[in-house]
């Protein structure tokens, strides 16, 4: 029995969703609405006391940390292998996942939370928002929510995040110029990880990912979007995530 607690097919939640879809593993989906603070509700905290998503329960065992969870899924279930067998490619897969998780994603998230998450909840009752913030278990997450809700990310930190996203996009473009996939010649969890952080970039005003600036990354995005697993994963979205995927179509295949 496998249950996945997740939000949209996006960032950390999307990583296990797409992994399970690629692997062909059936699971029970529990949608946790991040914008409704479902992840800090007493019921959810009984499952994951960290109050973050995603979380997975497999045969009564609770798993968290989306990247470690992806390797777990690949190890625990039959289906197409999602990690290269060559040790060097496997190392590259892990290197890229760490780069994405700890360098690229925090910066992309800061920009996204400032532009989207903060404004979507800001207008609620101030007292209620204060109670919601106080209920967040991890101190790091409390800081992030506070800044997003009150719009207090500094200009300097936003600029630094923009620089890092541009740098990450450039590095990824360089890699995809040399190799078909992030880990090398094999499709892997690193591509699944990256898809969840890059699929929305072509629509982002930052302009870090575009046909002009990063043609190889665009080509990789089209390939990723064509995969049946990706389509199934994004069909689970309830916000504009599904819409964004629809735009990832090669210009030659767009209907007139």
């Amino acid at each position: 029995m496998l249950t996945l607690y997740h939000w949209e097919p996006n960032a950390n939640s999307g990583k296990p969703i797409l992994t399970l879809e690629e692997k062909g593993v059936e699971f029970e989906s529990r949608y946790i609405d991040l914008l409704n603070f479902d992840q800090h509700s007493p019921d959810y905290l009984k499952i994951n006391p960290n109050g973050t998503i995603p979380a997975m329960v497999h045969d009564g065992r609770m798993l968290y940390e989306s990247t470690a969870m992806m390797e777990y899924v690949d190890e625990a279930f039959d289906g197409p292998p999602l990690r290269p067998t060559d040790p060097v490619e496997r190392w590259r897969m892990r290197w890229w996942m760490k780069f994405l998780d700890q360098f690229y994603s925090p910066s992309a998230s800061m920009i996204g939370w400032n532009a989207f998450i903060g404004p979507s909840v800001r207008d609620r009752d101030p007292e209620e928002l204060k109670r919601k913030i106080d209920a967040i278990p991890l101190p790091e997450r409390r800081v992030v929510w506070t800044k997003a809700i009150y719009g207090t990310f500094s200009e300097a930190e936003l600029a630094e995040s923009a620089r890092r996203v541009r740098y990450g996009a450039k590095l990824m473009e360089e890699q995809l110029t040399r190799h078909a996939w992030l880990a090398g010649e094999t499709f892997s969890l690193a591509d699944i990880n990256a898809m969840n952080l890059v699929y929305f970039m072509p629509a982002n005003p930052l302009g870090a990912v575009s046909a002009e600036k990063t043609p190889r990354t665009m080509e990789w995005l089209y390939k990723m979007a064509e995969r049946p697993a990706t389509r199934r994963a994004w069909a689970r979205g309830k916000t504009m995530t599904t819409e964004r995927l629809k735009h990832l179509v090669r210009p030659s295949q767009q209907s007139a």
């Binding site: 390797e71 777990y72 190890e75 625990a76 060097v88 190392w91 892990r94 290197w95």
Partner: peptide, 30 residues
């Protein structure tokens, strides 16, 4: 990346494994 060097050593030289070798144990390590 020091931790990935450890994983690499286990992948390239499987003898005397330093990972538990089962999905749950390996997840915990990570």
């Amino acid at each position: 990346e020091s931790f990935f060097i450890l994983e690499y050593l286990d992948d390239a030289f499987p003898d005397a494994p330093l990972r538990p070798g089962d999905p749950e144990g390996d997840w915990k390590v990570r």
